[in-house]
């Protein structure tokens, strides 16, 4: 097998140029998907037979929760690659993921609370799903705090990468919490092996929002990655070319 592509991904100038080229290809489709998802979710989708229009919180809650997990898995994978192959760019990817993941975890918790109050009669319960999602937020914040607290960039990379990799055990706990324990939270209705438990008019806006958020993550990650790579490459001559306007 030809591994050139992998080695090229370890080269900061190559990654920087690639990020510049790819960002708009993710950002604009993301904007389109999210706009279409909002329109179809708020206007076109019929009200739920039990929850009325209250169910529309789904279209911001589920994509935020999906981001919180997907970004974490991306971060932990990048951190593991950084640890195993000592790849600087991989550590830069992991560091770029954390603030994005933390903010969407926050959104998932807040939108979940706003959905819980009218449907369950409470904003918060120390329920397995809710508690493990809160732990995820603390993992992100701990990761960021650890990085900020260590001055030497290489040590910060390695220490925070270990935290990210160990913390990944929380991801299956969050996903399966609703089946393993008695939880207020419902079981997955889309992210499951069987057919989604939703009619198409309700499912389509959700899929648009999920795709839109995922594309948005790619665009955000590439932008942050450029910033990280620039900050790490102190003396490299290629920097002169990319920052001189």
């Amino acid at each position: 097998m030809d591994w050139t592509w992998f080695h090229r991904l370890a080269s900061p100038p190559h990654v920087y140029a690639l990020a510049v080229r790819l960002t708009p290809w993710f950002a604009w489709p993301a904007a389109l998907c999210i706009a279409a998802g909002l329109w179809s979710g708020l206007v076109l989708a019929p009200p739920d037979y039990q929850q009325g229009d209250g169910f529309r919180i789904l279209y911001v809650h589920a994509p935020s929760a999906w981001m919180s997990l997907m970004v974490y898995v991306t971060m932990a994978t990048a951190a593991a690659v950084g640890l195993i192959w000592r790849m600087k760019v991989a550590h830069a990817v992991a560091a770029s993921c954390a603030p994005i993941g933390a903010s969407f975890t926050f959104a998932a918790l807040v939108t979940g609370a706003l959905w819980g109050q009218p449907m369950w009669g409470t904003y918060w319960q120390w329920d397995p799903r809710l508690t493990s999602e809160l732990v995820l937020l603390f993992l992100y914040l701990g990761y960021m705090g650890l990085r900020a607290g260590i001055e030497d960039p290489q040590r910060a990379d390695r220490a925070s990468a270990v935290l990210a990799v160990v913390g990944v055990v929380n991801v299956p706990i969050i996903h399966y919490s609703v089946t393993w324990w008695n939880s207020l939270h419902q079981a997955p209705s889309v992210m499951r092996l069987a057919k989604p438990a939703m009619p198409f008019a309700m499912l389509a806006p959700l899929l648009l929002m999920l795709l839109g958020f995922t594309l948005l993550f790619a665009a955000l990650l590439l932008t942050r990655l450029r910033a990280e790579v620039l900050a790490r490459e102190r003396a490299a001559s290629w920097i002169r070319e990319v920052v001189s306007v």
């Binding site: 999210i34 909002l38 708020l42 229009d53 209250g54 529309r56 919180i57 911001v60 809650h61 994509p63 935020s64 603030p99 994005i100 903010s103 969407f104 926050f106 959104a107 807040v110 939108t111 706003l114 959905w115 109050q117 009218p118 948005l216 955000l220 932008t223 942050r224 450029r226 910033a227 990280e228 620039l230 900050a231 920052v243």
Partner: peptide, 28 residues
């Protein structure tokens, strides 16, 4: 409940775009 949920999510999306662009501008 619906509008605050959409507002918070929208704010997180917009802030993320702003923060990412700001961190790139700073690094440059």
């Amino acid at each position: 409940f619906v509008w605050p949920a959409y507002l918070v999510t929208l704010a997180v999306v917009v802030l993320n775009i702003f923060w990412a662009r700001r961190s790139l501008a700073r690094s440059r």
